[in-house]
């Protein structure tokens, strides 16, 4: 196993880059990172959750349909749909990476939106009432009072979802996105007889990434909670 890592470490990490496009684990992280927190999925999920907890009827329905649709179908289907539909819809060819990203964003937004919504619903009603009573607008109340509490409470659920997304990105190798599972496939076809070791290394990469993320989240949550209970 170590000799595989030794021999193909670079390929696992960055694919054929810099000769070819960036691939391997780096691309997995880029895909997961863009698709989630920093990128598009989480902001989209926040909007969906606000729409679902808000009082504007048509927005609420739209968000609900979105959530139920994308939560109810497997990610592979979304990836395929994006692969075949996206080029037709916008009438140009779409790079595999962008296709994969779009699929992951819409798929994950549905799950994340439900987590955020649970966080919003989980706060006592009096928090919003008190915030509005002192004259804050809905948006101000959300920003200063509701979201800081709700997001802190849902960090563990968010992390679970992030972790499962990192793993789920592995599926996009089927449309040719060069991430780490794609690299592993390539290495496997070079080596032929060492599939077990190759895929063990692959698993280790995912495992370590998810472990690190969980630990970071725990550290972050502890830090924020400690600050909230700082001795006076």
């Amino acid at each position: 196993m170590l000799d595989i890592l030794h021999e193909y470490g670079l390929m696992f990490l960055v694919g054929t880059w810099p000769v070819g496009p960036l691939g391997g684990f780096a691309n997995t992280l880029v895909l997961a990172g863009l698709g989630l927190g920093l990128g598009l999925s989480f902001p989209l999920a926040m909007l969906l959750a606000l729409a679902r907890t808000g009082s504007i009827r048509w927005l609420k329905m739209l968000a609900t349909v979105w959530v139920y649709t994308f939560r109810g179908i497997p990610l592979v289907m979304v990836v395929f749909w994006a692969y075949f539909l996206l080029p037709v819809m916008i009438d140009t060819t779409v790079p595999a990476f962008a296709t994969a990203l779009a699929a992951i964003v819409v798929y994950e937004s549905a799950f994340l939106a439900e987590i955020v919504r649970a966080g919003l619903d989980g706060l006592p009603k009096g928090q919003m009432e008190a915030a509005r009573s002192i004259g804050l607008s809905y948006a101000q109340a959300m920003k200063s009072v509701i979201l800081p509490q709700a997001l802190l409470n849902i960090i563990p659920s968010l992390v679970s979802q992030f972790v499962s997304t990192i793993k789920a990105t592995s599926i996009v190798y089927i449309i040719g996105v060069q991430e780490i599972t794609f690299s592993a496939q390539q290495i496997n076809s070079i080596e032929m007889t060492r599939a077990l070791s190759v895929f063990l290394v692959l698993a280790a990469f995912y495992f370590v990434a998810c472990l690190e993320l969980s630990q970071f989240a725990r550290w972050l949550e502890a830090r924020i909670r400690a600050r909230q209970l700082r001795p006076a």
Partner: peptide, 28 residues
């Protein structure tokens, strides 16, 4: 919001914002 800002309201359950200090609650 302007009208509400001119009316204080005190709740049975206090409803302080738990993530803010006493001072920050009052400052908001």
């Amino acid at each position: 919001n302007v009208l509400r800002a001119g009316i204080g309201f005190v709740f049975q359950q206090f409803n302080l914002f738990p993530h803010l200090s006493a001072r920050e609650n009052v400052m908001l």
